[in-house]
Structure formats: structure tokens, C-alpha cells
Design a protein around this nucleic acid. Structure first.
Length: 582
RNA sequence: GUCCGGUUCGUCUAGGGGUUAGGACACCGCCCUUUCACGGCGGCAACACGGGUUCAAAUCCCGUACCGGAUACCA
């Protein structure tokens, strides 16, 4: 029989990190076994379920790439079938009407109330002492017909009186993760199947739907371990063979307490990671390693590798801590998740990264159609050394010295690809491309005060030197043939970003305006000579220029930055006084 | 209270009778370097406790402690 698994979230909030992992494991199991991955929205709690939550969950799943193989099932649509099942069990004497008036909800914390009540009962409890349990069906019918409200409870075999012929005194099943699980009937209450208002309850709904959907394997959080025993009783009453079960360890907060939406907020929501510039593949990878391992030292797994290696045996029995740092903006989520994301950004194939960067730039109005001419897909036309490293673990060789003929035209597709490959090495999230990397794509970038203080203000001479360096570049590396274009023309004027993106100006720089000689080795010669002449250190000039050219103190080799930014923009930025007064 | 689980560096984990208890993240140091990263090298750091079984226990058994889950006319 082909495997059929389901992910069944209740739409009472966004997609929680723990739920996301449950979805992942279900998905991996389905793919690994060649089965189907289904999605069921458990919206039977009308009071708490919202469409917005459903949307948010769907968004999160979509981002992670877990598309269900069949149409999404909404549990609330099946309420009639659930009621039908309950009535059948009632008719067969496997359930009974409970006329006990519904308890008024207390204003205290529900969990606490329940815990307290359970404590009171202690070991003395007897789940079979409901006065309506043995009520004759005639009397039950009469009272029901009279309009007296009732809930329908499952009649769990009473092993104490021995009135039931059942020889089995406990429910048991072989859990895919936790092994043999047993529970005495005496430990299980006569659970309510149907509320007095006719509303089907969770355990009944789940069993009915799982049967209906022909689920073969239920993979869910460990918090459902005791529900499984209840559900087993329902399966039995319904006369249906139950599926296999596997329960997952829970994901805990740093204090090993419960990871809750209410208490920990955004950090547990999947959409937060999407919006924070996480690469879905990276987060998936991180999630997979939280409570599962293939028993090897490898840590970076592609989806295909995860699918191939995933087994229930690799799942742990102990809970894992999601180790984020509350109140620390730099380490707002688990360090390893951040590292994993950075690792993906700098090593994943460029062809996979480029579309993600495109989205990021687009969202910030930094995208230009020239980066993707003729509607052709963002393909890597240059080989990325690091992308190769992603496939094999061969050593990353140094970028070969630039050769004038091979240099892509600034603003072109090739330039874009090469630039992304250059700057991604020190980025952590996709957001960095539009923030730290902004100066590569726009004239409208800010100057980091710390960078200005450290690299500019500290060396007042630079205010003279840097424009002087610009002149030197122009004289020695500029294209004497080309017409001198006014600095800051068209594309490069410091206009508002809106203006720049709305009118999509023509290609910023033509071949004619790109110096054939403004490349790394030449730049180095000029800068070195200039530095010597001024009797200062190379770092002073380089870091000053870096601050002016990129607005930040962090970046790739300055020689690459010069070349990437291009002669015209370099000249303009070196001459600009904006940074000095920012 | 009762039932059910769990416990290896700060965190994620490998290891399931004989290991200098391995890796990753984080942290620290060194190298590389015009900056910051990346990378390389190195360091810090763990078998919850107590009994057994055994020539030998992180590993098997029992107990204790601690942590977690469940115990609803919630899901």
C-alpha cells in the first residue's frame, strides 16, 4: 500500500516552527517512501480558527516548498460525517449520551484548572463512574427526545467490573520513534466525541478524517502521544484498522520551556524567516537537523539528499532547544540557523541564488531589467568558483586576475551576476543585498557613521586626497577616446530611488564610456603609486575609498570594488563630499 | 497527583560494552589581509546522580533527581 501522510495544522496562528518541522518530516517521509503528502486544515474550533491563520500557514508551507499532493481538506467541511460516526457508535452501544450539564468555563487559565482538577482526583480517579454510562437506551432516548442537552462519550471498556468481554486491558501500538507504547484502559477517560451543541471534537474528527483520507502513517508532535491511545479506541469502536504512528520530539525555548507564539512572538513564525531574508532551503536544512540526524557528520543537505537519507529511525526521542537569544538583535534567532543561511548564500549555485536576490532587489526598487535582458532567465554565464565548491568539496581557487576583454559591461547581466558572486561571500541574509550591498545597485545609499568616523574623519587629508585619486584614475585609466561625460548624468544622479526605478533609464554605461583599463591590476598600480607619493599607508587610502564607494566599512577586496563599481561611478563617488557631512 | 517520555560540551548532535568520547554552531587565539568576512590552523567545553551486572559501562539493569508531554463538551 502506498504511503499517505498528512500535515494537519489548526489555523489558530501563523505557521509555528515546530509545526513547520512536523510538515517537513511528513514531507520527507512521503517523498522517501514514494507516497503522498497531504494537507488538512483542522478548523473545527470555530472560535479560534481564522482565515488569516490559514493563509499564513499556507504561505509558510509554500515558502518552504511543501505543496500537498492532493486538494487541501478543511476539517470543518466534514462535520456531518463526524456526527454521523458518533451517532453510529451511539446506536451500536459503543458510546453513550452524557446528560451532565456542561461545565461553565472558568476565567482562570484552562491548563491550570485542568491540572488542579486532575491533582484532586489523584490515583483515586475512576473514569467509569459516569452515572449516564449505564443508562438504559430507552431512558436515554426519552431524555434526548425531551430536548435535554447531552454530549456523546465513547464507552471505554471497564476492566474493573469485568462487564466487558474485552480480553485486552490496554491500548498499545508500536511508535515509529518511541517504540512500544502501552496504556491501561483505566487511564483513559470516556472521551467526548460530540459536544452538547452537536459539535464534533478533535479526536473523533481526526480519526474520521484520517480514515477518509486513507492515511497510512500519522507523524505528529509528541504532545499527541496520549491522544493516540484515545484515537486507537475510536478506531476499534469504528471497526477500522488504525494507521501507523510516529511521534516527534518537541522543540523547546532556550529555557527548555514551551516555545509559544504568545510568549516568544515572531521568532517562532515561519513568515518571519521568509521576511528576514532567509533562504528556504537553508531553513529547511536547519529544521531537518533539529531532532533528526543521518548519523553522520555531514550537515549541509540538499532537499534530495534529505529525502534519500530520511528515516524514522534517525529521529530522536529527546526534545531539542531552539536556541535564539531574546533581546539580542544580532543573534535574534538560533546561531546555527543564521550560519546555515550564510553558508547557503555563499555556496549555493548562483542560478538558485540569483532569483532570490532579484526578488530582494525588486522589493527595494533596486532591480533593473538590464540585469535580465530579453526576459531570459537569470543564468550564470560566468562560472562561480564557490558554486563549484558547493557541489564538490574541492578547494576554492582565487579569482583569476581580470582580463580587460572578459570584463562585463557595467549594469549588464554579466556584471550583475559577477557582482552578486563577489559580494555574497560575507552576507548572512538576502536582506544584506539591499542594505549592505545597496551601493552596488544605486546611487542612493547611506553612509555608516561608524565607517565614516573610522575611515574618513580620522584622516582629514583624505578630503583632498580622494578627489585627487579620482583625477589620477581619470588621467591614467580613463578612456581618452571617449567623450567626457558630465559626472552624475542620467542614471547616476542622486535622485530618489523611486525616480530611478520608475522610468527605467537606458543602460547606464555604454562600452564607450567604460574604460578598458580600469581593472584590478592597473588600479593597484595607480593606487600604490599614489599612496607612496602621499607618504601614507595603503589601508588609509583603501578604507577611505571603500567608505565613499560603498558607504560601509565591510566588503570585498577594494580592487574588486573599484572595478565592480566602475570608473565613472568611482570618479563621482571619490569626488563627492556627501559622506563628509553625513 | 497519575500516566507517558527524556537526560552526551552553552546549543544542535555522533557514538548503543573496550574511543585520547567525534563533528557543527557559538566563543577565544593565531595565520591570511587595505577593512570586514570567508578560509586555514589551534583552543575552551559534555556522558545528571547513586547503585548494580561485567575483566571492562556514556553504552545493559534498577533507583533517585531534574526536565518535558498528557490528563477539557481545546486542538
Amino acid at each position: 500500500m502506498t504511503v499517505r501522510v498528512r500535515f494537519a495544522p489548526s489555523p489558530t496562528g501563523y505557521l509555528h516552527i515546530g509545526s513547520a518541522r512536523t510538515a517537513l518530516f511528513n514531507y520527507l517521509y512521503a517523498r522517501h517512501t514514494g507516497g503522498k503528502f497531504l494537507l488538512r486544515i483542522e478548523d473545527t474550533d470555530l472560535a479560534r480558527s481564522t482565515d488569516e491563520s490559514t493563509r499564513s500557514i499556507l504561505d509558510g508551507l509554500k515558502w518552504l516548498g511543501f505543496a500537498p499532493d492532493e486538494e487541501i481538506v478543511f476539517q470543518s467541511n466534514n462535520a456531518d460525517k463526524h456526527r454521523e460516526a458518533a451517532r453510529r457508535l451511539l446506536a451500536e452501544g459503543k458510546a453513550y449520551r452524557d446528560f451532565t450539564p456542561k461545565a461553565e468555563p472558568s476565567d482562570a487559565n484552562v491548563k491550570d484548572v485542568i491540572k488542579e482538577r486532575a491533582r484532586q482526583q489523584g490515583a483515586e480517579k475512576n473514569f467509569r463512574d459516569n452515572p449516564y454510562r449505564e443508562l438504559s437506551s430507552e431512558e436515554s432516548d426519552v431524555r434526548a427526545a425531551a430536548g435535554e442537552p447531552f454530549a456523546i462519550r465513547l464507552k471505554v471498556p471497564d476492566v474493573r467490573t469485568g462487564s466487558d468481554s474485552d480480553r485486552v486491558l490496554k491500548t498499545s501500538f508500536e511508535d515509529g520513534v518511541y517504540g512500544l507504547q502501552e496504556r491501561d484502559y483505566a487511564e483513559t477517560e470516556d472521551l467526548v466525541l460530540l459536544r452538547s451543541d452537536g459539535h464534533p471534537l478533535y479526536n473523533l474528527a481526526v480519526v474520521c478524517d484520517d480514515i477518509e483520507m486513507q492515511i497510512t502513517d500519522v507523524i505528529r508532535g509528541q504532545d499527541h502521544l496520549t491522544n493516540t491511545h484515545k484515537q486507537l479506541l475510536i478506531y476499534k469502536a469504528l471497526g477500522v484498522e488504525p494507521p501507523r504512528f510516529a511521534h516527534l520530539p518537541l522543540i523547546m525555548a532556550p529555557n527548555k520551556g514551551k516555545l509559544s507564539k504568545r510568549k516568544h512572538g515572531e521568532v517562532v513564525s515561519m513568515t518571519t524567516y521568509r521576511d528576514a531574508g532567509f533562504v528556504a532551503a537553508a531553513f529547511r536544512n536547519f529544521l531537518a537537523l533539529l531532532g533528526w540526524s543521518a548519523g553522520e557528520e555531514k550537515e549541509i543537505y540538499s532537499l534530495d539528499e534529505l529525502i534519500k537519507k530520511f528515516t524514522l529511525e534517525g529521529i530522536h526521542r529527546s526534545n531539542a532547544v531552539f536556541n535564539f537569544h531574546e533581546g539580542d538583535p544580532k543573534r535574534w534567532t538560533d546561531d546555527k540557523a543564521i550560519w546555515m543561511n550564510a553558508e547557503y548564500i555563499r555556496t549555493m549555485p548562483l542560478s538558485d541564488l540569483l532569483p532570490l536576490v532579484k526578488n530582494e532587489l525588486k522589493a527595494n526598487k533596486l532591480w533593473r531589467e538590464e540585469y535580465e535582458p530579453d526576459g531570459r532567465a537569470l543564468m550564470t554565464s560566468i562560472s562561480s568558483t564557490s558554486a563549484q565548491a558547493f557541489e564538490s568539496s574541492t578547494e576554492i581557487s582565487d579569482r583569476p586576475e581580470s582580463i580587460a576583454i572578459d570584463r562585463p559591461r557595467h549594469g549588464s547581466h554579466d556584471w550583475f551576476v559577477q557582482t552578486i558572486d563577489l559580494i555574497r561571500a560575507r552576507f548572512f541574509t538576502l536582506k544584506d543585498f539591499s542594505t549592505q550591498g545597496r551601493a552596488y545597485f544605486s546611487e542612493d545609499y547611506d553612509f555608516d557613521p561608524a565607517a565614516v568616523a573610522k575611515n574618513l574623519t580620522k584622516f582629514p587629508d583624505l578630503q583632498e586626497w580622494l578627489p585627487e585619486l579620482a583625477a589620477r584614475f581619470e588621467a591614467e585609466l580613463g578612456d581618452s577616446e571617449a567623450e567626457t561625460r558630465p559626472v552624475g548624468s542620467v542614471f547616476f544622479s542622486r535622485e530618489t530611488p523611486e525616480a530611478a526605478s520608475e522610468q527605467t533609464p537606458a543602460l547606464p554605461l555604454t562600452d564607450a564610456c567604460c574604460s578598458d583599463r580600469f581593472f584590478e591590476s592597473n588600479i593597484e598600480t595607480v593606487v600604490k603609486a599614489f599612496t607612496e607619493e602621499k607618504g601614507t599607508k595603503l589601508g588609509v587610502i583603501m578604507n577611505g575609498a571603500r567608505t565613499l564607494l560603498t558607504g560601509v566599512a565591510v566588503g570585498p577586496s577594494m580592487l574588486s570594488v573599484f572595478e565592480t563599481v566602475g570608473l565613472e561611478r568611482t570618479l563621482m563617488r571619490l569626488r563627492s563630499k556627501v559622506a563628509w557631512y553625513s
